[in-house]
Computed example of a mutant assay.
Amino acid sequence: MSELASSQSPGSAFPTRRLMDGLFVLALAIGAGFALQRFGAYMDLYEKSFLVLAVPLFGWLGWQWRGLRNLQVAATLAALAAIALYQHDLARAEQVFLLKYFLSSQTAIMWMSALVFFATGAYWLGLIARAPFAERTGSAATWIACGAALTGMLVRWYESYLIGTDVGHIPISNLYEVFVLFVMITALLYLRYEQRYGTRRLGAFVMLVESAAVGFLLWYAFSRGAHEIQPLIPALQSYWMKIHVPANFIGYGAFSLAAMIGVAWLLAERGILASRLPSLELMDDVMYRAIAIGFAFFTVATILGALWAAEAWGTYWQWDPKETWALIVWLNYAAWLHIRLTKGLRGAMLAWWAVVGLLVTSFAFLGVNMFLSGLHSYGSL
């Protein structure tokens, strides 16, 4: 039996799970109804549609993965507690103990950052020392970090409206916010595979890219003041942003996960940590699944981006540097999947390709903003 398998029998768990699934969807519906009643005046038709569609979507995700359901519930309760403590006054973030040290958006994101570093160390200790307790600690810390990230984003969304109704927006509009999104999505993708394959031995590698992202996030926050909430620039005042950006970052997160599994594969193939890591076949399968999922979402994101461009600039494609590099990323992973599926190739070449693919993806995500200019220059450093 898998090290992560549940000890509860299916028969005894089924009625309880059905009840919890039903209560979860009911809570989602009540929450969506309350949001529509309370904040509907500030929403357009598209935002109301997204909110209504979120109920079956997140309900289905919660049914499929109880860990994600529990995360959503915990983060929602924490965010609601923060909202109640604010009492419509943003200044209370520095006056109320729970807000100042736990529940304000910036504090929650700092907890996320600390927990990511802690989880990275715990996973590596577990891998090197063959210590299951350290691995379980790393897994738990990663879950809590995801909860802190989701709480921080939800509370930041509310805080933006406390600044002004004309300032309020979903927190995925700048590099600071999307790095929080990237950390959370990548960690959740890893945790899903951790559960699916019943091993925590790959967490040490995946959390390295998470720690690097958090390192950039902290530098960006403290050196550039990027944590401050700013009004949306006109180019981002679009409903397309709310679906284009999350789809993009599921792709980025999956590609990053695949690259770090590729690093583990290459080390194990050379006999480094081979006795501590899962089999090459298992890692190859995780790498393939991650790239397949990432490619699907990145394709959707690219199509959505083209539709957004047509609305904003009157044309679907302008060979802007960001668009060009997005196409390069898409072609890179399309070729990877084509070779694996049609030629049946496995092994070192595809592992190296996945690793190099992360460099290409990183330049498309961050390098373009740093070194090139174009229609997407609003995301520059």
Rank of each mutant, 00 (worst) to 15 (best):
L236M: 13
V329D: 08
A268C: 11
N248H: 01
L359S: 12
M241S: 05
L341F: 15
L266K: 04
G251H: 04
A226K: 04
M260C: 09
L358Y: 14
L218R: 01
W336A: 09
I339P: 02
T302A: 11
L358P: 04
V360C: 06
T361F: 02
W353I: 00
S279W: 07
L267Y: 06
I272T: 04
T324F: 15
W308A: 07
K242F: 14
F298H: 11
L282I: 12
Y220Q: 02
S256Q: 12
Y252K: 03
A290D: 03
R289N: 09
L232C: 13
L350Y: 10
W313A: 12
A296F: 14
G253H: 04
T324C: 11
L307H: 14
I339D: 06
F298K: 01
E269L: 00
L218C: 08
S362C: 10
N332L: 00
V355A: 14
H227M: 12
W308R: 09
H244K: 04
M287I: 00
G225L: 00
M241F: 04
A290T: 00
S275E: 15
G305D: 11
L350W: 10
V245L: 05
T324G: 06
L304G: 09
W317P: 03
I272D: 06
Y288Q: 07
Y239I: 11
W317M: 08
L304N: 05
W240D: 07
I250Q: 07
A254H: 09
G305F: 05
N332G: 03
G271R: 02
A348T: 14
I272P: 01
W265N: 07
I261P: 03
T324D: 13
W336S: 00
W319E: 13
Y239E: 12
A274M: 02
N248R: 03
I243Q: 07
A301D: 01
L327K: 02
W330N: 07
D285M: 02
A258Q: 07
